[in-house]
């Protein structure tokens, strides 16, 4: 077991899910540049693949993968629905909402229809869409992070306008805050976001290298920026999550790590990615070719393979497991040990 321990807590690396592929079926599958994920109440994961972000013949690489946490790939949907899919969230009525940064809108999908690779519905799969391009209140420019609050209203990081906006799930504008700059409450191309159990809103302020915490109404509360004595400041944070204890997890995109903070902003530790064991999908692929197995066994150091390469989306499931989107085409999962006691080594072993 690979464990990262600090401040009476520990994060045990659990497993990886998926591999870089456009394929998705029961035995194998994965994601093509996963950018965000959502955990449904039934612990089903909806993983949003960015795809190539181009309108070429391969634009169906962007899609939503439906997966269990123990890596049963249940199928895909929303192929050929996106240009730059950025954020994903599930509503209480079991629908999936996805922001598209290029199209400047929010697309809505049912969760009960999946398609075997490489099929898709040529008539379109979305059951709703709202949002229009612009900078007026209620309009959107490069919408990215998205999250529902306890009332099933939705907050959206309106990245191109450097602000956060709150809507009903039908797209009616409620409120907004922000502006371009580096002062508290201002943003520089913010990306992902989350909402904690008390309704506080956390926004990854990508260009300002910080995460800002706000009250539900948009009052600035706190900034998370890392510390000099723990590997330097955040570098282009992509997303943020909060567990049931209030610990804050930031995908530190530029530093290729997940930075973990106390609720008051103090740094606890960081996760760097530990997937030195292949996911089930990876195992399935490697077993198809004996020469690949032989070569893989000869690799002297698997550490580079385990590291995050641009962590993006991050979520906490209902058992406080930390699930991280790794642009390598996989997810990495850590289990939190809330009362970790470091083993005492006898003096003669030290």
């Amino acid at each position: 077991m690979i464990t990262t321990a600090a401040a009476g807590r520990a994060w045990h690396f659990s497993h990886a899910l998926g591999r870089p592929t456009n394929e998705h079926n029961g035995k194998t599958g994965g994601y093509r540049y996963p950018v965000d994920l959502a955990v449904a109440p039934d612990d089903i994961l909806y993983v949003l693949s960015r795809g190539l972000g181009t309108k070429t013949a391969f634009y169906d690489f962007g899609r939503i993968g439906k997966t269990t946490l123990d890596e049963e790939h249940l199928g895909d949907f929303a192929r050929r629905e996106f240009t730059w899919p950025a954020g994903i969230a599930t509503s209480q009525d079991d629908r999936v909402f996805v922001t598209d940064e290029w199209e400047h809108h929010v697309a809505i999908f049912p969760t009960d229809v999946v398609y075997p690779f490489p099929e898709f519905n040529p008539d379109g799969e979305r059951i709703g869409q709202w949002g229009e391009a612009g900078s007026e209140p209620g309009q959107l420019s490069r919408p990215s992070g998205i999250e529902f609050d306890a009332d099933d209203n939705v907050y959206i990081v309106d990245s191109g306008n450097d602000r956060v906006q709150k809507f009903t799930k039908d797209g009616e504008y409620i409120l907004g805050w922000g502006g371009s700059g580096s002062e508290p409450g201002q943003f520089d191309r913010p990306w992902g976001m989350t909402i904690d159990s008390e309704g506080f809103v956390y926004v990854a302020d990508w260009g300002n290298n910080r995460v800002q915490k706000f009250t539900p109404g948009g009052e600035f509360a706190l900034s998370f920026e890392g510390t000099k004595d723990d590997g330097g400041d955040l570098s282009h944070p992509a997303n943020v999550a909060v567990d049931s204890d209030g610990d804050v997890y930031v995908t530190d995109w530029g530093n290729l790590r997940v930075q973990i903070y106390e609720p008051n902003g103090d740094v606890i530790t960081a996760l760097y990615g530990d997937a030195v064991k292949l996911s089930k999908a990876g195992e399935y692929i490697i077993r198809r070719d004996s020469s690949t197995i032989v070569a893989f066994r000869q690799v002297k150091d698997l550490t580079p393979m385990g590291r995050f390469e641009r962590p993006t989306g991050i979520e906490i499931d209902h058992q406080d497991r930390v699930i991280v989107c790794d642009t390598r085409g996989r997810l990495q999962v850590y289990a939190k040990d809330k009362a970790f006691v470091a083993p005492e080594l006898k003096a003669e072993l030290l």
């Binding site: 990886a16 591999r19 870089p20 070569a295 393979m305």
Partner: peptide, 16 residues
């Protein structure tokens, strides 16, 4: 160079 890790398993890794 050291053994290469097959890219379809987990994306590109630097070759040593």
């Amino acid at each position: 160079l050291g053994v290469k890790i097959y890219e379809p398993l987990c994306g590109p890794c630097p070759w040593p």
